[in-house]
Simulated assay, not measured.
Amino acid sequence: MMTTLMNEKDTKKRTRILVKKGVEYILLKLEDVVFFYTEEKLVFAIDKMKQKYVVDKNLSMLEAGLDNTVFFRANRKYIVNINFVKGYKPYQKVKLIVDMTLPDLNHSIIVSQETAPYFRKWIAEM
């Protein structure tokens, strides 16, 4: 019984994530996360209110637990939420720069040449 429960939990994508703000731990709804990013070996989540939280996982671990129809690993540094992507434009001929719906976030999210075709396909299918 316990094994079945564990297997079901593994296959079900999460809807919330435990994050830290100061000394407080908060359950943050994934639908409210604009993107995750890494900086100086820490991982952060930015929500739709532009609040910044610390995430106690690396991006690869996070990516494995996220719904890939909603979240996309743009590069080594960012995972973006489709619901906050306004669009994209070419950058340095072969790369893409992602335009997010929230202004003033001061993050340049660049999709590499190798990942760009997958990003275009992901955007088109949503």
Rank of each mutant, 00 (worst) to 15 (best):
L42V: 11
Y25K: 12
E24C: 13
D56A: 14
L59Q: 04
K29F: 10
Q51V: 00
F35P: 12
N75A: 06
K21A: 01
Y37G: 00
S60V: 05
E39T: 10
N58Q: 10
I26H: 10
M61L: 09
N68K: 15
F35D: 02
D32S: 10
V19M: 03
F44K: 15
K50F: 05
K52W: 05
A64E: 11
K57Y: 15
V33G: 01
M49W: 14
F44Q: 02
G65K: 01
Y25N: 13
D67K: 07
Y37P: 00
V33M: 11
V54F: 02
D32L: 08
V43K: 08
T69S: 13
F71A: 06
L27W: 10
K52M: 06
R76W: 08
L28W: 14
V43S: 01
L66T: 02
D47C: 10
S60P: 03
R76G: 11
L66Q: 04
F44M: 02
D32F: 06
G65W: 04
D67I: 02
D67S: 07
N58I: 06
A74V: 06
N75G: 13
E39M: 12
K48C: 12
D47P: 03
E63K: 05
M49K: 13
E31N: 13
T38P: 00
Q51G: 01
I46E: 09
L28P: 06
N75D: 07
L30W: 00
F35Q: 00
V43L: 02
D67N: 14
